[in-house]
Design a protein around this nucleic acid. Structure first.
Length: 408
RNA sequence: GGGGAGAUACCCAAGUGGUCAAAGGGGGCAGGCUGUAAACCUGUUGGCGUAGCCUUCGGAGGUUCGAACCCUCCUCUCCCCA
């Protein structure tokens, strides 16, 4: 693959900004000439064990580098997790305990190889170098940065404007991330656009410490399925890459129309020309947006579960939601003897056992609103003690189904 | 170190002695309409087997027949000055 094709591949729609394009070209050129692969860094905080499509944009970018023969260096921020990245936060993040960090890092590793090439991936923990630093080293490192520069970033400006607290340790976060770049001798650092500041700090620090500056390659931020803010585990508006095909499909179908183009560009791996065609169809309304969304959903499932699973998810979706039938597979809820009197169960208890409600009040609220049905028959407050038998289907809301099984 | 402001439910925010389980907005959930879209309309959003009761307004005490509201101490945050 020649240089221009490689550049085109790397700088597709999933790249929002490059610092700088010329330097990237030079690095690629030099690598091709010397045969020495580039070291492409990505830092992850082991705070959110579920990797979702938002992370995937950047991970797939790393995979693109790997496919071109370069090395992906994944830094598990076990040490930075103790700090908490202030990026995009209006609040100080909680600091994690060692056990939590270890468990999270483990699940992280299990998931990333759904996307990355294990042969060309290095995984390191930044605790390896941070725990060796003496306080005097930290002071020396900190002296390379100025407060004005560190406070420049939006997150802090906003917080200062709102008179919200900023802890000293949060200021250190970009410093640590920059130091990571130095330690792994990064040629390229990947991140979402929100990482711009941190990544640029890495360039500056490498420069000061006598290294060639890394390239910053920034991916757009994927909007969450609810449509207003970025995809995030803590907000719960995400599609995880380990999720079941049917859930992935359904969640994708529930995004609003305005988001289709974004998901098309950032979350699928369609050819650029195909994406363009679909986007045009969206714009001139020559196709029903639903159908395009359908195609996007199918593609996303196919990336993580294969074509067959995607087809199944699609037909299941049509069956359940287009034709209103019960899904072919639904979670089983088991009722034990102690739950049942004379073959009946109070509906509030049933809903609590199903995990749909946490209290009688909220359960009865659902019943009152007509959201609950058993075998297709709506449950009412007047008949709140319902007869149950194995094989009955409990439906709550539009799309929560449970298969009831009696034990003994 | 000195002075000032503040902490209310998931979030923002009203409330300054009883009529407060606590206005309003956001978010969530649910119903209608749909394409499991958006927009819109409606309901719901502490707990208790569904009735009245119980526990909530940063924490601990106190005043009062009665406290989110008044007093004391404590914790935390912000602002101004040094």
């Amino acid at each position: 693959m020649d240089l221009d094709r490689a550049l085109m591949r790397l700088l597709d729609a999933t790249t929002a900004e490059v610092y700088t394009k010329d330097e990237l070209r030079q690095k690629l050129e030099k690598s091709a000439k010397t045969g020495k692969p580039l070291r492409v860094k990505l830092g992850v905080d082991p705070t959110a064990p579920d990797i979702h499509l938002g992370h995937a944009v950047v991970l797939r970018k790393m995979r693109a580098f790997q496919d071109l023969g370069h090395i992906g260096v994944l830094i598990i921020g076990d040490y930075t997790a103790r700090v908490g990245d202030p990026t995009g936060r209006s609040k100080t993040r909680p600091q994690l305990s060692d056990d939590e960090i270890e468990a999270n890092a483990k699940t992280y590793k299990e998931q990333v190889f759904r996307i990355l090439d294990p042969e060309r991936t290095e995984i390191v923990c930044n605790g390896d170098w941070f725990k060796e630093l003496a306080f005097s080293d930290v002071i020396r490192l900190a002296s390379r940065f100025t407060i004005a520069r560190l406070l420049e970033r939006d997150d802090f400006t906003i917080r200062l404007g709102k008179n919200l607290p900023i802890s000293l340790h949060e200021i250190l976060y970009p410093v640590m991330q920059a130091y990571d770049s130095v330690m792994v001798k990064a040629d390229v650092e990947l991140g979402a656009t929100e990482q711009t500041f941190n990544i640029l700090m890495g360039r500056q620090l490498q420069d000061q410490m006598g290294q060639e500056r890394q390239i910053g390659l920034l991916a757009p931020i994927l909007t969450g399925i609810c449509g207003s803010v970025r995809m995030s585990k803590s907000i719960g508006n995400y599609i995880g890459i380990m999720e079941k095909p049917s859930d992935m499909f359904g969640k994708t179908m529930s995004i609003k129309d305005e988001l289709i183009g974004e998901y098309l560009r950032l979350a699928t791996d369609f050819e650029a020309s195909h994406i363009e065609r679909l986007e045009r169809a969206l714009a001139d309304q020559s196709k029903n947006p639903r159908d395009i969304k359908f195609e996007v959903a199918k593609r996303i499932v196919a990336i993580y579960h294969g074509d067959e699973a995607a087809d199944e998810a699609a037909s299941e979706f049509e069956r359940v939601f287009s034709r209103g039938m019960a899904p072919s597979e639904m979670p089983v809820m088991t009722l034990h003897e102690q739950h049942i009197t004379d073959g009946r169960v109070w509906i509030a208890n049933l809903l609590k056992i199903a995990g749909v409600a946490t209290s009688n009040s909220s359960a009865l609220g659902l019943v009152r609103q007509g959201a609950v049905s058993l075998d297709g028959k709506q449950v009412t407050l007047d008949h709140a003690d319902v007869k149950v038998a194995s094989g009955m289907v409990l439906k709550v809301g539009k799309h929560r189904f449970f298969n009831i099984q009696l034990e003994r």
